[in-house]
């Protein structure tokens, strides 16, 4: 539906170069650290900036040179940019002021109801909580029935507890209305929980596009793996479709040719079991479980124990097993980086 075709934007000391497409009804996330070019990409899509080369196609039509007014894309900024001199109702109606009054009223009621804003209809936007502001911003962006909704870190300004519930709401909304969303975030958890697909961006380019489960469990390279939190990088030997884990060998789900590979193994895929002996060097209690670090023949390995009955003390001996579920090597050329 939306095709971003070799889009390039040059700055004196930075270059953004992206290529991807988003299907109708898809929740597509651009994930990356700040300064990686994801917001610039979003601004290019919105038409707030124009690329130096490449094109943007919407349903096959080239809209690269179309001004933002003509694109019919909804946009929600991180700080929502609600018009301070207009109340909730007028903010929402802003983009459909040219429509007839009856339609405006109908659309307003729909959106107020959808976002549970009925009681705030006449309220000044200056007196809204962060969550309410976000709902007004979403309602305003959706009022003209945009073909694509662009969200630039819409949760960044909210409390963590509020963030989670609003995230859930956004997900339901997207599914219910079949919205096509391009979502920019630096928060992995948000990207993982909301998206159909995630594009990981770094230094102006997209390094990987994949589904959340794949990107988390089978990252392509070291950087992608490290981006989603703690992981263990372990070099393991593979022979005859089985991986050597200390004293034992485990059959891989998807066989690969013999050799030595670098694997990214998340702490939750290692636990007490058989294969590798170690000594606990540190422990962090996380509430739902305990994250341990153990000194082993592979160096320090992190592993998670869920619902523990007690916390192991420093210096205790453990034997660790490995789950081969989703185990896949990460990109060879990145191994030494």
């Amino acid at each position: 539906m939306l095709k971003i075709d070799n889009l390039v934007k040059n700055y004196p000391d930075f270059r953004v170069s992206v290529d991807f497409s988003v299907s109708k009804g898809e929740f597509f996330s651009l994930l990356g650290p700040s300064g990686c070019g994801k917001t610039t990409t979003l601004r290019l899509i919105a038409g707030l900036e124009y690329p130096d080369s490449g094109s943007i196609l919407l349903e096959g039509e080239d809209i690269t040179k179309l001004p933002p007014q003509k694109r019919r894309f909804g946009l929600v900024f991180q700080d929502y940019a609600l018009f301070p001199h207009l109340n909730v109702e007028k903010n929402i109606l802003y983009g459909i002021a040219k429509e007839n009054k009856a339609y405006q009223q109908k659309r307003l009621q729909e959106l107020l109801e959808l976002f549970r804003l009925e009681h705030l209809q006449k309220r000044s936007v200056r007196n809204l909580s962060g969550g309410e502001q976000q709902r007004v911003a979403l309602a305003r962006a959706l009022a003209p029935n945009p073909q694509v909704l662009l969200l630039d870190e819409p949760f960044a300004a909210l409390d963590p507890s509020l963030r989670e519930s609003l995230r859930e709401e956004l997900k339901q909304l997207q599914e219910r209305l079949g919205l096509t969303i391009v979502f920019v975030t630096h928060n992995q958890e948000e990207a993982l929980s909301l998206s159909h697909r995630i594009a990981i961006m770094e230094k102006g380019i997209i390094t990987e596009i994949a589904r959340p489960f794949e990107v988390y469990t089978k990252p392509k390279d070291r950087d992608s793996a490290a981006f989603f939190g703690r992981t263990n990088f372990v070099k393991l030997k593979v022979t005859g479709g089985a991986v050597q884990w200390g004293t034992i060998s485990l059959l891989l789900e998807e066989p690969i040719t013999d050799g030595e590979y670098l694997f990214s193994v998340r702490p939750e895929y290692i636990g007490e079991g058989k294969g590798v002996e170690g000594v606990i060097v540190s422990s962090s209690f996380l509430g739902f479980g305990v994250l341990y670090a153990a000194d082993t023949a592979y160096g320090v390995l992190y592993f998670l124990e869920f619902a523990p009955s007690t916390i192991k003390s420093k210096g205790s001996r453990v034997e660790l097993g490995l789950s081969v579920k989703n185990l896949a090597p990460i990109r060879e050329e990145e191994q030494d980086s």
Binding site: L48, P68, Q69, F77, A81, Y94, P144
Partner: peptide
């Protein structure tokens, strides 16, 4: 002046 206010107006159809 927060330029995003004006940009939001652009995306909502304002010249």
């Amino acid at each position: 002046l927060n330029e995003r206010l004006v940009e939001s107006a652009y995306t909502l159809g304002d010249s």
